[in-house]
């Protein structure tokens, strides 16, 4: 490979793939792949992530469009909720005859 013909994978952007397993469930992140555009990303996702009957719906989104929290922000973001046990609904007495809880 010379410099005149760079590998195309260096140019294809990365996409994140979300698959919904069946109706009623949420789309779940399953991985990422390279594609030239959204349509191709969907096709690739179908071939890479739904080969074993895993899905009924696929979302793809360009990875660089996702805004993510960083490890640096971990303490201000997540630590304050660690000692606030009263935010968990565990202080109620549940009557014995209430089903589905």
């Amino acid at each position: 490979m010379t410099d005149a013909t760079p590998r195309t994978s260096a140019q294809w952007p990365l996409y994140e793939v979300f698959v919904r397993g069946k109706r009623g469930l949420n789309h779940v992140h399953v991985g990422s792949l390279h594609a030239a555009d959204e349509r191709m990303a969907l096709t690739h996702a179908r071939d890479l992530y739904t080969r074993r009957n895993e899905g009924v719906s696929i979302w793809v989104v360009r990875s660089d469009l996702i805004t993510a929290s960083t490890p640096d922000e971990r303490d201000p973001f997540f630590a304050p909720s660690g000692d606030k046990v009263y935010r968990h609904p565990t202080f109620y007495d549940i009557p014995a005859d209430v089903p589905h809880i």
Binding site: T8, H34, H44, L48, R51
Partner: peptide, 11 residues
């Protein structure tokens, strides 16, 4: 030419 295409063709 691409890993993703390879799998698509194999499929």
């Amino acid at each position: 030419p691409e890993l993703e295409e390879e799998l698509a063709l194999a499929n």
